[in-house]
Design a protein around this nucleic acid. Structure first.
Lengths: 118, 118
DNA sequence: ATTAGTGGTAACATAAAGGAAACTAATGAG
DNA sequence: CTCATTAGTTTCCTTTATGTTACCACTAAT
């Protein structure tokens, strides 16, 4: 669905959904934004409910879409770090708005998304 | 998935996705917000790509979630009008942020979502 | 020789979302 | 009597999305 939604003929909101729609993308972006030297394994620990396969897939799509940058260091065992791209950073206001709405909705404070987690 | 995402134990952004996630919900909400006396048929005309079945289903979910109000007049042929609830109106900043991001992304002006369409 | 550590991938399976086409009820118009 | 109108619903089917489990490559440490 992602690629279909990104179709330039679609309305703006629909296109946006093409980039951040999906169960995990918004939270993955926030984790990458609020973290430092964010590694794959760190993300799996922070978000135990997302499977490794899905996480890898979402990261790949986010990279394809130019929202995050993947730094791969040629070491053994491997080390990979993710960070938001400049384009990805422009999404912050959107993610913040979504976060704020969800917070005032109910259960404020469950999983404090916006506060950095080590 | 919608109900699962709305689980209060989830992070705020994830919960928000439970309400506005889905291919058509954001645009349906905007259409209802920017329109007057918005009727089912009017929506199908404004959004020819969404099938009647899916539209009806999304409207029902939005109503269940308390984001829109359904006014059904007992006439024949039937007349139904939709409007945003107070809660639904609190989503406007989120939808606006999504719309703005999508606009600056590409093809600005395709399907001018935010401007009222008759 | 075995194990731990890292960032994945492959094969397979299920769940959720989305959609096409036909159908309904009640009434007023012609 | 027949047709148009409105806001859906029903049935059946296809496409996406998400998830589980097992496995790989390479090195250093035990």
């Amino acid at each position: 669905m992602r690629k279909a939604l990104q179709n330039p003929d679609n309305c703006a909101v629909v296109r946006t959904m093409g980039y951040i729609g999906g169960k995990w993308k918004p939270i993955v972006l926030i984790r990458i934004f609020t973290g430092v030297k964010v590694r794959f394994g760190k993300l799996t620990v922070q978000m135990p409910d997302i499977s490794r396969k899905i996480l890898a897939q979402q990261l790949k799509e986010l990279e394809e879409d130019g929202l995050i940058i993947r730094h791969s260091y040629m070491e053994k065992p491997p080390r990979v770090e993710y960070e938001l791209s400049e384009l990805g950073k422009t999404l912050i206001p959107v993610l913040k708005a979504m976060n704020d709405w969800g917070e005032q909705m109910e259960n404020p404070g469950a999983c404090p998304t916006w506060n950095p987690v080590i």
